[in-house]
Write a protein that binds this DNA or RNA. Structure first.
Lengths: 344, 344
DNA sequence: CGAGATTATCGAAGCGCTTCGACGATCAGG
DNA sequence: CCTGATCGTCGAAGCGCTTCGATAATCTCG
């Protein structure tokens, strides 16, 4: 029995050309005449030739595979994850790349393994935290990567994240559209406004600027995460601004406490107070009532991440940070303001 | 600047041994003395050596990667899919393999691409249909594979599927435990019992045998899928067996119609009639009331699939079909039978 | 019409690793 | 003490592909 695997040499022989010619036909890196190219393609088809990925990667130092590092174990919202993964695979394929699935719980060692072994040309990391332990490793590795999320120090990296400025703005607009005139932002804890990359600032600025542009009365308030601190903040807010009817909450940890606090202040949601959150869909859907919320558009993130990675693979240096337009999903926590007068 | 990538030759030089010795230290395929081995390992660590995956795959004809073919676009129940994917990745890693993610909608061409290019050593295909177009392709390919699901013709393949015999049995036992004495099975349409691989038969046999063993009065009934046909079947069943209090439904398409039919016959679920379904969790949870149901245990399936694949990669030929123990999740459609007498 | 540019192709040198055969050195048994 | 095994190591031959000159052959234009 002959060797079962068809090699490029077989194709070359069959087509009556040299091995290198076949290679150039395949890669298009040198001009090849129409006739030769056609003949080679015919031979390829006739023999059922598929280039050996390993040989290719050895010779060219390119594997045409990217790593997708996912937090598979965690309590992330699964549908979003899948949507994201699907987008990554689809995009990658459209760039002729395959996707190696790596679990986040392999940690930095996992990255090193696939990257240093030249198994992948680049990496996409989902769910990157502010002080992610994988970031230093990533910096050492010579492979390009794209992060979903914004670590504190993103110099020299490529990150994709939600555009929090617009997220703040879109929340205001949503409330304004529902007729609310006096609104507030419950933001991150005080300390977050001081350290970190200012995503909290960006949300607040978007919130305040848009409120001003739309002529709303707006106040932005940092908010701690402990239940009683939240309650205190909410109470104070309601006392100082008795006519408040709209609330934007940008603080995952505090969301539930805010709802509790409102309830105990006798404010019904959404009848007396509309609430819009900036948080994962998962959280918004678990809440009672379900929260109108702004969330990251998963497949756009996936697509973008791959585009950026491909750019880096082709020696283009994309912006360090790409911000994606936020999407507001209306749910049961926001409601047209109850009106006493007449309103168009 | 020197070459940035550390090769096995660098390690050999650093350790003062030959290249082949380093290779043998790594693979363990030949005896190496303790001292040499230690020295080599030290050099590997000192230099930060990671073997080049492509070179390795080229020389050894093994990539240490398996393909995971998932129906990413489809309306499958996402959490189950993720659970499954996680199990596959974790298992694969424990066998020192990585996982390449391939979408099912690439079809047979996708399989051919990754398999023929020696990109993967083997494949795991999720969600294989009875007449799956990928099966013929899979047969041509020389790579070993494991299928989740049972195509009609599974000769020469390796498949993992739910143990439907036990699924039937476990449903009966569940109903018996709740005190039901007279039960029925609404199965697949008549035609399914004739063609196909008899998973319908297996469920029915498990159902009938267990009922008999437990001394229950049981009847098995094929069931069409159209709403009116289902209604007719249900009505007839209730007429012929007025004391029926337990129903097992093994027919995804008919489940909703069965519930409707029961309702219109004045039977409340679960008060008057307990229902247990054999169907995806997704469906069971969407129904009203939510259905006690038997579903495939996703991570066990993933684990098994990888184990079987590894067996094949090591030239062991596993059984063509592996059946997994079913798991019954009690929900709101099954209930202790209302009793008129005294029961322990 | 001829010098230089361009086009189409080839040969050969690796890419980094595995694996086979060979070869001393050490060991066990008669 | 000699003869085979066994052990530990080495050198070299690929694995299938890309890519870098080199070489004809053809074209372009003053």
């Amino acid at each position: 029995m002959k060797k079962s695997v068809v090699t490029i040499a077989d194709v070359a022989r069959h087509a009556g050309v040299s091995v290198s010619t076949v290679s150039y036909v395949l890669s298009g890196k040198r001009a090849i005449s129409q006739t030769t190219s056609a003949r080679v393609h015919a031979s390829i088809r006739a023999l059922g030739f598929h280039p050996h990925a390993g040989a290719r990667s050895l010779a060219s130092n390119r594997s045409s595979v990217i790593a997708l590092v996912l937090p598979l174990r965690q309590g992330m919202h699964l549908p979003v994850l899948m949507q994201f993964a699907t987008a990554v695979v689809t995009s990658a394929r459209s760039h002729d790349h395959d996707v190696l699935l790596v679990t986040a719980d392999e940690g930095p060692a996992g990255l090193r393994r696939v990257a240093a072994g030249a198994m992948v040309d680049g990496l996409v990391l989902m769910d990157v935290e502010m002080h992610d332990p994988r970031v230093p490793t990533l910096r050492q590795l010579d492979r390009p990567s794209v992060l979903i999320g914004l670590p504190v120090d993103w110099t020299g990296l490529t990150c994709v994240d939600l555009d929090f400025h617009r997220a703040g703005a879109i929340c205001v607009r949503h409330l304004a559209d529902l007729g609310h005139r006096e609104i507030a932002l419950l933001g991150a804890p005080e300390v977050v406004y001081q350290r970190d990359t200012g995503y909290a600032h960006r949300t607040r600025d978007g919130f305040l600027e848009t409120a001003e542009a739309l002529g709303l009365s707006a106040v932005a308030q940092p908010c701690e995460e402990a239940a009683d601190a939240v309650k205190e903040t909410v109470t104070a807010l309601l006392t100082e601004h008795p006519k408040l009817t709209g609330l934007v909450v940008h603080n995952e940890a505090a969301v539930a406490h805010v709802l509790d606090a409102l309830r105990s202040e006798g404010k019904r949601v959404p009848e007396d107070m509309s609430v819009v959150a900036i948080c994962p869909d998962e959280l918004a859907e678990r809440s009672h009532p379900t929260l109108s919320s702004v969330q990251i558009p998963a497949d756009e993130v996936g697509r973008q991440a791959v585009e950026l990675l491909m750019a880096k693979l082709n020696d283009r240096e994309p912006p360090a940070i790409t911000l994606l337009p936020p999407v507001l999903t209306p749910r049961n926590s926001s409601f047209p303001v109850r009106i006493t007068g007449i309103r168009s």
